[in-house]
């Protein structure tokens, strides 16, 4: 008697939980739906090439060339990667190969803390400290530059790079290291010629994920990049990224206007990039796991 009721309840509960589980996928689909629904109408008025390659963004004149934003976003991301990768991979090597336990117990929590600091806090710090440092170091009229944005982004993506690289390095089997040492190699030779190359797919996965983070970041960037809607000339130029443009202009855009649609289109770009990078990254990480099976 009891069992019969029990199994029915179980089936109902299972069905409810299945519904719960689909929520995550459902939300993802909803996001795509709404973003595209609000963004795509723009392409009927303005061609996709004009959007991606046009270099003038003047909403008042219905000019929506996003090229300067795309270029700025790419340069800022590139800059942050150039700064963060050598530092991050080195720290990962330090943690897995060289660090004594006491050092690891200090550095690891520090990195966790870094990753938990809200982006707006980084933005405020960058606005007051980094922007002034850049201004003074390079003798500029303003320190609100791509360089400042790259620096603060680099700090923000360091934890991802370090943690994924450390996982990759630690998963390189001990026997490779032993083989190298047994032939008379030094620590650094073993690390640089055997361990890191063997871990490289995983390390690259971390870099890709970090780049996705950097392209999608808004708050830290918008406060320090100067917000000039032009094509940047160098790292010391001011600029505006896809994300900062959305943030700044949405307040003024009339709902459902072309401007509104265009801002959603600006959001599609980082959205797609991040999904692709996320996918690539997990494939690479899976590849490292099977490599050493």
């Amino acid at each position: 008697m009891k069992k019969g009721n029990g199994i029915n309840t179980e089936k109902i509960v299972a069905a409810i939980l299945l519904l719960f589980s689909i929520t995550a996928s459902f939300i993802l689909l909803l996001i795509m739906l709404f973003i595209f629904d609000s963004g795509l109408p723009m392409f009927s008025k303005i061609g996709i090439l004009d959007f991606l390659l046009g270099d003038k963004w003047i909403p008042a004149k219905n000019l929506f060339g996003a090229f300067p934003f795309i270029v700025t976003a790419l340069i800022v991301t590139l800059g942050s990667v150039i700064i963060a990768v050598p530092l991050g991979v080195s720290c990962a090597i330090f943690l897995s190969e060289i660090a004594p336990r006491w050092a690891r117990n200090i550095v690891r929590p520090a990195i966790e803390l870094l990753s938990g600091i809200p982006s707006i806090i980084y933005g405020v710090f960058a606005l007051v400290v980094i922007v002034n440092l850049v201004k003074i170091s390079f003798n500029l009229a303003t320190g609100e530059t791509i360089l400042a944005a790259s620096i603060i982004l680099a700090i923000m993506i360091l934890p991802i790079i370090i943690s994924i690289s450390q996982d990759a390095i630690e998963s390189v089997p001990r026997i490779y290291r032993e083989g190298s040492y047994s032939m008379g190699a030094t620590d650094w030779e073993t690390i640089s010629r055997v361990v890191v190359p063997a871990a490289s797919p995983g390390i690259i996965a971390g870099i890709i994920l970090a780049m996705g983070r950097a392209i999608g970041e808004t708050m830290a960037v918008v406060l320090v990049i100067g917000n000039v809607e032009k094509l940047p000339m160098s790292f010391l130029s001011s600029g505006e990224t896809l994300t900062s443009a959305i943030l700044l202009e949405m307040g003024e855009a009339v709902v459902k206007s072309l401007h509104y649609n265009a801002l959603f289109c600006l959001g599609i770009v980082p959205f797609i990039i991040v999904l692709i990078f996320s996918f690539l990254s997990s494939r690479l990480i899976a590849k490292t796991k099977t490599r050493f099976a």
């Binding site: 089997p173 026997i175 490779y176 083989g179 190298s180 032939m183 190359p197």
Partner: peptide
């Protein structure tokens, strides 16, 4: 220098994930 004079072969074959050539050339190169 000691480990150059005294070589070791392990229980499980552990070639590096590199080409045959690079595996052999590893020791001399370093």
């Amino acid at each position: 220098a000691l480990r150059k004079r005294v070589g070791m072969v392990f229980q499980r074959p552990n070639p590096f994930p590199m080409t045959v050539y690079d595996n052999i050339a590893y020791g001399p190169k370093i």
